[in-house]
Nucleic acid binder design. Sequence first.
DNA 1: TGCTATATAAGAGCGTTTCTTATATACTTC
DNA 2: GAAGTATATAAGAAACGCTCTTATATAGCA
Lengths: 133, 133
Amino acid sequence: MRITPQRSAIYKAVLEHGDHPTASEIHKWIARDMPHVSIDTVNRTLHSFHDMGLLNIVEGEGGPRRFDPNTRSHHHLHCDRCGKIIDFYSDAADNMPIPPEVQNDFIVERKRIVLSGICRECMNANDASGSGT
Amino acid sequence: MRITPQRSAIYKAVLEHGDHPTASEIHKWIARDMPHVSIDTVNRTLHSFHDMGLLNIVEGEGGPRRFDPNTRSHHHLHCDRCGKIIDFYSDAADNMPIPPEVQNDFIVERKRIVLSGICRECMNANDASGSGT
DNA sequence: TGCTATATAAGAGCGTTTCTTATATACTTC
DNA sequence: GAAGTATATAAGAAACGCTCTTATATAGCA
Ligand SMILES: [Mn+2]
Ligand SMILES: [Mn+2]
Ligand SMILES: [Zn+2]
Ligand SMILES: [Zn+2]
């Protein structure tokens, strides 16, 4: 795979961005330094990186794909209010046994836990507005 | 909430479809009996059902939302080849402890396990084509 | 039966992803 | 270092899913 300025910038952007960005967000992020990179190149490149194992694609409830530069084994919290996706780590989750009937009919290559609910910020926002005088 | 022919048909279609269909798939499914139902109505109605707790929205890796009429606590296998999503049940998963540091910063309302890999059909398809003489 | 709040159809609009094609360029070969 | 070639990119079009707008229809109530 060729090394191009676009690819370097895209990879750097994903690492710097930190969160779980969409192709569009990476495109905007990069635009500061390289305004002429096309969204098509960003999207195509992110998928190439995914195919090479440099990035994960994060589970979501429809909508645009979100990419994840964190390649350590980890899991996610999804906030139902603000849509934020937060990493967490859990040995219990990593070591959780897979049911035998699944193992018979399916080759498991990846195991992820998704917890949905309300994040701390949204909790606080709710408290502040909800219980005043 | 009013009972309308469209809503009845959409609910029936989701139950009959069985799998984890998209709004568009339900729209096509219904078209056999009711060709004049709009995709907008299907989509809006599916979301209403979701808000009422009749349906779940299934986690996916981008792309259109997929709905799930199975309201029992269960988890999913995602086939990387054919994109199929298969239900499975696991007490170990349901009882898995949530890390304390998560509980401090997040109100967990739903817990799902997603296993990605290769389903039996894709396995067999691969065998048949891959290792012949 | 008639009324009214709610639901629907149709099409427009929007954002994301993919496709097409001409142009540019990273890497190889000499 | 120069030339050649396979690969990558830009730009715009197109496809797709989802949402919004507005005029019309209708379910359920009085
Ligand atoms: Mn992550
Ligand atoms: Mn399911
Ligand atoms: Zn939140
Ligand atoms: Zn499969």
